[in-house]
Computed example of a mutant assay.
Amino acid sequence: MPTLPAPLGYVICETPDLEENYQKIAIYMLNDQPTHVARQLLNGKWTSKLGQDEDIEHDTLEGLTGERYGQVAQVMKRKVGSRVGKST
């Protein structure tokens, strides 16, 4: 599985479990190509944008795995409120 670059201050983490003070994303890949990113909500559920207008919530990351999006290749996290290039 390829290692993906750390976007916008995210670092690789080991689990998709909810962690206080962290925002997590999950990157799906199919045929070694990124296909989708899901973001964890404060309640531990995940949100995904499917098409232009469809935002969905899902309890687990496995709900989107399959022929369209592939598998979760990497889960990443960043501290809540941290952003690259954010001025202080």
Score class of each variant (00 low, 15 high):
52 Q>T: 10
81 G>W: 06
6 A>M: 07
41 L>S: 05
23 Q>V: 15
43 N>H: 08
62 E>K: 05
25 I>D: 00
14 E>A: 12
15 T>I: 01
2 P>L: 11
21 N>A: 12
34 P>L: 09
82 S>H: 11
52 Q>E: 04
62 E>D: 09
88 T>I: 05
57 E>V: 12
28 Y>W: 08
80 V>S: 08
73 A>N: 04
81 G>P: 03
66 G>Q: 04
63 G>F: 07
18 L>D: 07
9 G>V: 05
9 G>Y: 00
34 P>I: 15
65 T>L: 03
20 E>N: 13
27 I>Y: 05
45 K>D: 12
27 I>P: 03
32 D>Q: 14
71 Q>F: 13
16 P>K: 01
22 Y>N: 13
59 D>P: 10
73 A>Y: 08
37 V>Q: 05
17 D>N: 08
77 K>P: 02
83 R>A: 14
74 Q>W: 09
72 V>F: 03
68 R>S: 05
84 V>T: 13
65 T>E: 04
36 H>E: 12
6 A>G: 07
82 S>R: 06
35 T>P: 07
17 D>I: 06
73 A>Q: 09
53 D>W: 04
33 Q>N: 14
47 T>M: 14
42 L>R: 12
47 T>L: 04
82 S>C: 10
13 C>R: 01
77 K>E: 12
52 Q>D: 08
34 P>W: 05
56 I>E: 12
8 L>P: 00
1 M>S: 13
2 P>E: 11
19 E>N: 04
70 G>I: 10
2 P>D: 11
55 D>F: 15
43 N>L: 06
4 L>K: 06
88 T>V: 08
34 P>V: 15
12 I>D: 10
58 H>T: 03
83 R>T: 08
57 E>D: 10
77 K>R: 15
43 N>S: 14
84 V>P: 00
54 E>T: 14
32 D>E: 15
53 D>R: 08
7 P>L: 07
82 S>M: 06
34 P>A: 12
19 E>W: 07
85 G>V: 03
55 D>P: 00
69 Y>S: 02
3 T>G: 11
3 T>S: 14
47 T>E: 14
60 T>S: 04
6 A>R: 08
30 L>Y: 06
40 Q>T: 09
36 H>Y: 10
21 N>W: 07
47 T>W: 07
80 V>W: 10
66 G>M: 03
86 K>S: 12
29 M>A: 11
43 N>K: 07
81 G>Q: 06
71 Q>V: 11
18 L>W: 08
56 I>F: 11
45 K>Q: 15
60 T>F: 06
50 L>I: 15
39 R>D: 03
74 Q>R: 02
3 T>P: 05
71 Q>P: 00
75 V>C: 04
45 K>P: 00
79 K>C: 01
8 L>R: 02
17 D>G: 05
74 Q>T: 12
58 H>W: 06
19 E>I: 15
86 K>H: 06
23 Q>P: 00
77 K>G: 09
79 K>H: 09
10 Y>R: 07
3 T>W: 10
65 T>N: 02
